[in-house]
Amino acid sequence: MKGATTPSRKEVRFTGYGGQGMVVMGLILGRAAAVHDGKSATMTQSYGPEARGGASSTQCIISPSRIFYPYVIEPDVLVGMSQEGYDKHRLNIKPDGKLLYDEDLVTLSPEEKTKNIHSIPATRFAEELGRKIVANIVMLGFFCGLTDFVAEEAIRKAIEESVPKPTITLNIKAFDKGKSYALSLLEGSAAKAKS
């Protein structure tokens, strides 16, 4: 598993509102990369009273080498789980960066600049699985299906270490749901390209 995939520094920003588990997403991705995938990872989060109930944002840098500058410069991936978070950060994305968002919670700006857009009803899927609270892990599965920054096995291990023990099965189901939805979208677009 060590040393796979990423050729250079990758930057990810997770944005939503307080309580959706944006920080947990960053923590899982960072832990997966740093502890289980032989990479360096730096996670930082919005902090303080302004982050409660309002916009919550987590930044995660992943790199095959030592990370000096610890903050997002231009994200390779922006994950939007709330309208406010998306609106606040959408202009900062890399020109060819990926935008992943929850389609029931975010309406895209007519001026959205990146073309690399993928949507998922993450919260609705989570509700179908029985608990809305795992929407973040559905989104993380979706992220994993659409990127190769961190090995899937590493993310699975990090989920198991980061969520409360009785919820591991539910969280893994949520991850699988998001990942298979991403793969079905990719297959769909591949089929479209062929026809």
Partner: peptide, 9 residues
Amino acid sequence: ESVGHMTEK
């Protein structure tokens, strides 16, 4: 604060 609240390996 930056180092105190940063998460790394």
